[in-house]
């Protein structure tokens, strides 16, 4: 890979734009201990199976360890929200309701997460 120059670094910082819909799963030790890996795999599988236009991503710990596994969802037209204590069950609802029907899922959101 080519070594970066100061100008190259400036260019690359502006070039990387993250857009589109995404799901982020908190995959630090705390999340993984609470079962985030299973949830992550589930989202990847479902997105593929249903041919959803959504990117499933990993991220670090957002700090709200009591509510792990945390899943943040950004879908165009809806506020981006964080779901807490997500298991396969809740993950299924997120796919069905939030991503496909564009409605937030009741009783699962942790709006305390910064």
């Amino acid at each position: 890979m080519a070594k970066l120059t100061p100008e190259g670094l400036d260019k690359i910082s502006k070039a990387v734009i993250i857009e589109g819909d995404w799901i982020k799963v908190g995959m630090s030790s705390c999340g993984i201990a609470a079962g985030a890996e299973e949830v992550y795999d589930f989202f990847v599988e479902e997105a593929k199976k249903r041919n959803l236009k959504i990117e499933v991503k990993k991220c670090g710990c957002a700090g709200s360890c009591y509510a792990e596994p945390l899943v943040e969802v950004k879908v165009e037209g809806l506020p981006s929200v964080v779901y807490g204590r997500v298991n396969k069950d809740v993950a299924g609802k997120i796919i069905e309701k939030h991503i496909i029907a564009k409605m937030l899922v009741n009783d699962c959101i942790f709006d305390s997460v910064v």
């Binding site: 670094l9 690359i12 990387v16 991220c59 670090g60 710990c61 957002a62 997460v113």
Partner: peptide, 16 residues
């Protein structure tokens, strides 16, 4: 600021 926001395994997201 980036914890829980970016993918820790991607340098591109850190660049962004």
């Amino acid at each position: 600021r980036n914890c829980g926001k970016i993918n820790p395994e991607s340098i591109d997201e850190y660049f962004a």
